[in-house]
Amino acid sequence: MSEKQITGQPLSRRNWLSAVLILVVIPATILLGVFVLEDRKYYFISLLIVFYTMIPFALVFEKRKPQARELIVIAVLAAIAVAGRSAFFMVPQFKPVVAIVIIAGVSFGAEAGFLVGATAGFVSNFFFGQGPWTPWQMFCFGLIGFLAGILFKKGLLKRTKLSLCLFGGLSTFFVYGGIINIGSVMMFSSHFSWEVLLASYVSGFWFDMVHAIATVMFLFILARPMLEKLDRIKTKYGLIEPVSAKK
């Protein structure tokens, strides 16, 4: 897969603002729901995360208004992630969501990656069941998409199958699995302890492994054709291209 976007670029002020919202404000909001609202207002917390997500995504367009076709592409990617998660409902943890989110982050940028991931987590749980786990899943899916976009922009993540599959497997296992297990302890245990957290990691090891393997497999199959098609769409319509990439 050829490099269609200039990589090795410095992070912009928009990227740093996005990082603060995603890495500080959203986790603080989730913890507010856990400790202050006692996990009973998860719809409210989920909607707040969606709102926070829209802020950095809106900043992508800087001084111009987003075109309808740009929003449609992002919505379609989120819908594909939701449909993919629903299609494999019978196989626990074997889902293509993280793969789609990584592709979105690489193709359209970190902010779009987070938006696709958070939206997919929220919408798909209308089929799988909403609950206090929804904000955690939204954050984990979105965070991986954000990291994919940032690492690709810095040139640390390549558009090769090896690079994408390696990042997908590791991020699914350590980022998604690592954070979700912490969330599970907070959701289902009356008090936090390292022993309970360790038990959560041990019991969730094979689920996290299956999830990581699924991400690698779906990236291996989908990354090249999806990125090539998205590149053609971006070239034809000039969608969400960083200013420096156009020079």
Score class of each variant (00 low, 15 high):
residue 64 R to G: 00
residue 128 F to E: 08
residue 62 E to T: 13
residue 86 S to K: 03
residue 88 F to P: 00
residue 116 V to F: 08
residue 126 F to T: 01
residue 92 P to E: 06
residue 80 I to Q: 05
residue 103 I to G: 04
residue 89 F to G: 03
residue 80 I to R: 02
residue 129 G to S: 10
residue 111 E to G: 14
residue 66 P to L: 00
residue 62 E to L: 07
residue 101 V to L: 10
residue 120 A to H: 12
residue 93 Q to L: 06
residue 90 M to C: 05
residue 84 G to Y: 02
residue 125 N to H: 09
residue 92 P to M: 03
residue 86 S to V: 08
residue 110 A to F: 09
residue 87 A to T: 06
residue 95 K to P: 01
residue 120 A to L: 06
residue 66 P to F: 00
residue 109 G to M: 11
residue 80 I to G: 02
residue 110 A to W: 10
residue 121 G to R: 05
residue 125 N to F: 04
residue 111 E to F: 12
residue 125 N to G: 03
residue 78 A to Q: 12
residue 91 V to F: 13
residue 70 E to F: 04
residue 128 F to Y: 08
residue 69 R to T: 11
residue 112 A to Y: 10
residue 65 K to P: 00
residue 102 I to M: 07
residue 107 S to N: 13
residue 94 F to L: 13
residue 118 A to N: 07
residue 97 V to Y: 03
residue 124 S to P: 00
residue 73 V to E: 04
residue 73 V to Q: 02
residue 106 V to Q: 12
residue 79 A to T: 06
residue 127 F to K: 05
residue 125 N to T: 07
residue 112 A to D: 09
residue 106 V to A: 15
residue 61 F to Q: 06
residue 110 A to S: 15
residue 119 T to M: 15
residue 110 A to H: 14
residue 120 A to D: 12
residue 115 L to V: 15
residue 119 T to N: 09
residue 104 A to R: 06
residue 84 G to E: 02
residue 89 F to M: 12
residue 117 G to M: 12
residue 69 R to A: 08
residue 79 A to C: 01
residue 109 G to L: 05
residue 85 R to Y: 01
residue 111 E to N: 15
residue 98 V to T: 15
residue 101 V to A: 09
residue 115 L to N: 08
residue 84 G to C: 01
residue 96 P to L: 14
residue 82 V to P: 01
residue 85 R to C: 00
residue 106 V to L: 15
residue 79 A to R: 02
residue 61 F to I: 05
residue 116 V to A: 11
residue 64 R to L: 10
residue 72 I to L: 12
residue 98 V to P: 00
residue 80 I to M: 10
